[in-house]
């Protein structure tokens, strides 16, 4: 029994990381209506900035702040200079454009810091707590707490503030929003900026575990995309819940189902995702969109 609980707790911890990046993806989707395949690469580049601050002798917390600030600026600048061109156009071209950003941004990180994984200091002490026979690392607890706080903040931003309402309006209908006097251009930049800043937080949280390298978040991104789709692309709550679900289910399936084992557990979230998409294309928590001809 305690083994089972241990698996669930570990799954929740990994799921929190998937959820954090999924939140960034949902944020971009809600503010600009796009899927950003380069979300992971942007997070990695920001994390490398934190790494540079730590290397220069600064405290990690300062590194985190600088990384988030860098992420916000990077996201906003890329939206304005690159992504703007593809918004509202052919969605396939937009997907390809963000794939181009993915290749470019991780290429920049690789050219500066090379592709060898490096150790990264942890924000939380490397201790484990024994709670009723289950071992929980302080790091996992901290990561999960940060994630929940960010999710609540985002949910509040979108549901309870004028800014959030404006961002939703711009994503839904840029033309009408502009006619209503909303600063569409700035709001789009802000959406990408906040998302990239959030990605920086996720990157700094996960780097001690994965070791920092330009490809650090490649697999996490795939999981995060699966989580975002499972939860419905427009729901922060859905993204986080789906992230936890994926983390727990893949852990349990890997441990208890012999055929799956540790190497094939990545197939589990995808099988779940395909089933959900076929039965309920808008995701578990998303709202159905109606397309007008």
């Amino acid at each position: 029994m305690s083994y089972f609980v241990q698996l669930v707790v570990d799954g929740l911890a990994t799921g929190s990381i998937y959820g954090a990046l999924a939140l960034a993806i949902v944020l971009v989707n809600r503010s600009t209506g796009m899927i950003n395949f380069s979300q992971g690469a942007l997070a990695v580049l920001s994390t490398f900035v934190a790494y540079a601050v730590v290397q220069a002798g600064g405290p990690l917390l300062l590194g985190l702040v600088v990384a988030v600030a860098f992420g916000v600026v990077l996201g906003a600048v890329l939206e304005r200079l690159v992504v703007r061109r593809f918004e509202g156009g052919d969605p396939n071209t937009a997907v390809v454009a963000t794939i181009g950003l993915l290749v470019l941004v991780s290429g920049i990180a690789g050219a500066i810091w090379s592709y060898d994984p490096r150790a990264f200091p942890s924000l939380f002490p490397n201790e484990t707590l024994a709670l009723g026979g289950v071992f929980v690392s302080v790091r996992s607890l901290g990561t999960t707490a940060v994630l929940v706080a960010v999710m609540v903040a985002l949910q509040l931003l979108f549901r309870a503030t004028k800014l959030g309402l404006a961002m939703r309006a711009v994503a839904d209908n840029p033309g009408s929003s502009a006619l209503s006097g909303l600063p569409v251009s700035r709001l789009l930049m802000l959406g990408w900026g906040i998302a990239a800043g959030l990605g920086a937080v996720a990157g700094v949280l996960v780097a001690p575990q994965l070791f920092i390298s330009p490809t650090m978040l490649d697999f996490t991104l795939v999981y995060a995309l699966a989580a975002a789709i499972l939860g419905g692309l427009d729901s922060p709550l859905g993204a986080v819940v789906a992230g936890w679900f994926i983390g727990v289910v893949e852990n349990l399936a890997g441990a208890y189902v012999d055929v799956i084992g540790n190497d094939l557990k990545i197939a589990v979230p995808f099988a779940a995702m395909i089933v959900v998409l076929v039965l309920r294309p808008q995701g578990l928590f998303g709202r159905r969109t109606v397309v007008r001809v």
């Binding site: 795939v222 789709i229 094939l264 998409l277």
Partner: peptide
Amino acid sequence: LAAARLRGLALAMVTIALPIVGTPVAKR
């Protein structure tokens, strides 16, 4: 047959699954 009901991004995600799942299957 399963994926063609979906559009754009959902479709991209389902097709991502092929190489992602295919690599460990090939190793297995």
